[in-house]
């Protein structure tokens, strides 16, 4: 078939701007900065503290990494955007490149995968899902500690909605970036860019991007 390639129509369905918890009703109700309580991580505000057990049996606490940049990536091994399949963040090699880029940009920076998948999802406990996560990462060539958040309290404290969903905490303990790990076209690595900027003492731009992926399968509280 003779086909003259004039690509004329492109869907511009790109997304940005992190949007937090859903809310019905008048959105202005309760919107008062003086009374505002942070029910999720916010840029330039202190990151929620956590102390979680890793798949390796160690306990990881945010307080132990004062003065270091910390990257938290919400992860699920069975999510095709996160860990399963060649197109996923980890299956595509983008995650391994991100971890490698992070270590080059700031050797002291820490990268953690957090698994907030509830017990019983896909027939696995959270611990089993965490072990599966570690296997996916090991296979991808970039092992990072996998933290287990079976009750989802840390995930909800951060406002993690999808896998993947990334939160970067600056050395001062404040949240510096929230969003996707890389751009949808894969050309921009937001994590490496953010960590590079933080290392250089520059503002993180963008500080928020639209995250996409599977919804985090939280346990009901």
């Amino acid at each position: 078939m003779r086909f003259t390639t004039a690509i004329l129509t492109v869907a511009t369905l790109t997304c940005s701007a992190l949007l937090g918890a859903a809310q019905q009703g008048d959105p202005h109700a309760g919107h008062d900065h003086s009374k505002h309580t942070h029910d999720k991580a916010e840029i330039a505000h202190a990151a929620p503290a956590f102390s979680l057990k890793g798949v390796d049996g160690k306990t990881y606490s945010l307080a132990d990494y004062k003065g270091k940049v910390v990257v938290l990536e919400w992860f699920c091994s069975s999510c095709p955007a996160s860990g399963r399949g060649e197109g996923s963040f980890w299956g595509s090699g983008k995650a391994a490149a991100t971890v490698e880029g992070l270590r080059k940009a700031d050797p002291d920076a820490m990268y953690f995968a957090v698994n907030s998948t509830k017990d019983g999802y896909n027939g696995m406990s959270n611990a089993e899902e965490g072990t599966a996560s570690a296997e996916v990462m090991s296979k991808a060539g970039a092992s990072v500690p996998v933290l287990l958040d079976a009750d989802g309290k840390v995930g909800k404290a951060y406002g993690a909605k999808t896998t993947p969903h990334v939160f970067i905490i600056a050395a001062d303990g404040n949240v510096a970036y929230i969003g996707a790990p890389v751009s949808k076209d894969g050309k921009t690595n937001y994590v490496v860019n953010a960590v590079t900027a933080l290392k250089a003492g520059k503002p993180v731009e963008p500080a928020t991007t639209k995250n996409e992926g599977c919804g985090v399968k939280y346990a009901k509280q």
Partner: peptide, 28 residues
């Protein structure tokens, strides 16, 4: 939709048309 909400991913469509034809932004 183009804003999937709290999770999911936008449906993206691109179309390549013959030379001379013009296309607009896809409508959902």
């Amino acid at each position: 939709w183009s804003n999937p909400g709290d999770s999911g991913a936008a449906t993206c469509v691109t179309a390549a048309l013959p030379r001379g034809w013009t296309g607009g932004a896809p409508r959902l």
